[in-house]
Write a protein that binds this DNA or RNA. Structure first.
Lengths: 211, 211
DNA sequence: GGGGATGTGTTAATATCATAGCAAACGCAA
DNA sequence: TTGCGTTTGCTATGATATTAACACATCCCC
């Protein structure tokens, strides 16, 4: 038996939505006002039926022979993902990966604002990365409470990930974006999304070997 | 119709193998000499049957009531993934993400050695990151040929990703680990693995919203 | 030695996801 | 207005992946 008993929406679909958003925004910049699934599918090398199904679960509806109106569609996807509002997040682990994520301006389009960073190394505390202050991890509970932050990004080494996650949970974090190569042990009510870079590398490795 | 017609091994299984490897190495450090699927499954919150099946495709075999011998199992997985040998790779895009990847020592355990970096910004050329020289992208073909490098890591902004990828292909790269939020248009014989960070964020977003 | 507990390997069943097929909706051109 | 081609939305088929079921092998304890 696994963690989540039922899934409301298919994971693969959710993972594809951001790429749809990308091409839709691009098309809008280019001046389009409507778009067909066929077009999106061609752009991303997917099946058009699949695109249609994915879009359907955002609740939007298209018109035969026309397709979808671009702006409402973009709004629908953003709304579905909760990216139409800005979500503040705290980053834990001000190493080079953390620095890279803070500087990654693409997240703004996803409604993600990394409002502060945390670490435990004394020499880092007080300095800042791209304008975000680095605080001591111990100050997180108070700051999270005061600023109402519930999302955390974990970019510490694997060896200290669980300990850091514990502090985050104690601070009231309910969603952790975990970049550490560790299976975190967390309460039921905390959502986790693991970014396993090496898993991705593994796929590339076997694909290259198979050619 | 999609790109790859047939897949030799199930993707989900391949993606899980590195986490098994992590657990197994940890157990070895702790002094174990054998391990059961049940144990691994518990450690990672998976189904034991699934673990057994995944391990089976590396070709190794266990013994009832005993489990698997640790070291041969680790070797089998590493061998399956091609991580028992060092693979040199070139990194394109010496921004903060590129820097983070170069400094990520975990890749050594995956047989990945980022041997040089490339960029197009004049002020970066000639300097180095963690001991890796930054060359001009135009020098890549010659260096790739000379050093026999066939794997590339793409960490440039989306807007310049396709152009950079074209240079990589021309340089003889046959596998691209793509961190740019773009669907690359590449020849048939080049393997790509896309790391879509925002897809991962999307999943976290809807999971948090659903709690 | 002889149960019992545990763990593998395999086959079968289920759930999930992707793909194909088709009718109805609609704009466009004649 | 009428026929044609396109595109949606739905249904059903097929592929893949996960979970369950079970027979057999091995060790431990008695």
């Amino acid at each position: 038996m696994r963690g989540e008993p039922k899934r409301l929406f298919p994971h693969p679909s959710i993972r594809r939505l951001p790429s749809y958003l990308r091409v839709l925004r691009q098309l809008r910049v280019e001046g389009s006002q409507k778009v067909s699934c066929t077009r999106i599918a061609r752009e991303l090398d997917l099946d058009s039926t699949q695109v249609r199904k994915d879009l359907a679960l955002t609740g939007i509806t298209g018109r035969p022979r026309i397709g979808y109106e671009l702006s409402p569609l973009i709004d629908a996807i953003e709304n579905f993902l909760g990216w139409n509002r800005v979500t503040d997040a705290f980053l834990v682990g001000a190493g080079s990966l953390g620095r890279a994520l803070i500087g990654y301006d693409n997240f703004l389009r996803c409604g993600l604002n990394i409002s502060a960073a945390f670490d435990v190394m004394a020499e880092k505390i007080g300095s800042d990365i791209f304008g975000r202050k680095i605080h001591h991890l111990n100050d997180m509970p108070e700051l999270a409470r005061r600023m109402g932050v519930t999302m955390g990004i974990l970019t510490v080494p694997g060896s200290s990930a669980q300990a850091a996650a514990n502090v985050m949970v104690a601070a009231g974090i309910t969603g952790i974006w975990n970049f550490a190569p560790v299976k975190l042990d967390l309460p039921e009510n905390v959502a986790v999304e693991n970014v396993e870079l090496v898993s991705s590398l593994a796929v590339l490795s076997v694909n290259m070997a198979g050619k």
